[in-house]
Amino acid sequence: MELVMTEQRKKMHPHKFILWIAISSITLMFAGLTSAYIIKRNQPNWLEFKLPVIFWYSTATIAISSVTIWLAVRAFRQGEMSKYRKMLVTTFVLGIVFVSLQVTGFIQLWKQGITLTRNVSISFLYPIVGLHAVHVIGGVIALLIMFLKAFSRRQKTYSAVPVEMMSTYWHFVDFIWIYLFIFLLMIR
């Protein structure tokens, strides 16, 4: 048994592994949607439109939140629990700000007449960005749970695994947004 354990310790933690497979699965969902978008792009009556400036701000927000979650993990590993909590809260707030900025962006689009049913080229924007926002909200909820755990006295965990998984997931939704943003800028 001892031998087995040392052998297994070298491997990635199984839960982290699960997360990575889940990430590839989610990636394929976005790949499916964006490739559908590319197919449509090549058809006639494509409508050109401009992305609102606010999406630049939201991109910056989520990029910064990636840095803060990274700092949170580092603080956790070094045992600086108060810094860890601070960084966790910052990330959490940035996540909420990001989602609000996205929603505001869409309200602006809507007011410009770029509504959901106006044209297929625009329709795509809503499910793609919407699904991404859902994934960010999922992350925000997970952050909230971690945050509550970090403050509860009862539960003393010293395992870095959940924190590291959280940060992997967060970097992932960040990465997906940057991909989508560049994609939308290029292909629009």
Binding site: S25, L28, A31, G32
Partner: peptide, 12 residues
């Protein structure tokens, strides 16, 4: 894991 998410996007 690789093909079901694509059906999900189709369904959405």
């Amino acid at each position: 894991v690789l093909s079901f998410p694509v059906l999900l996007s189709g369904c959405i």
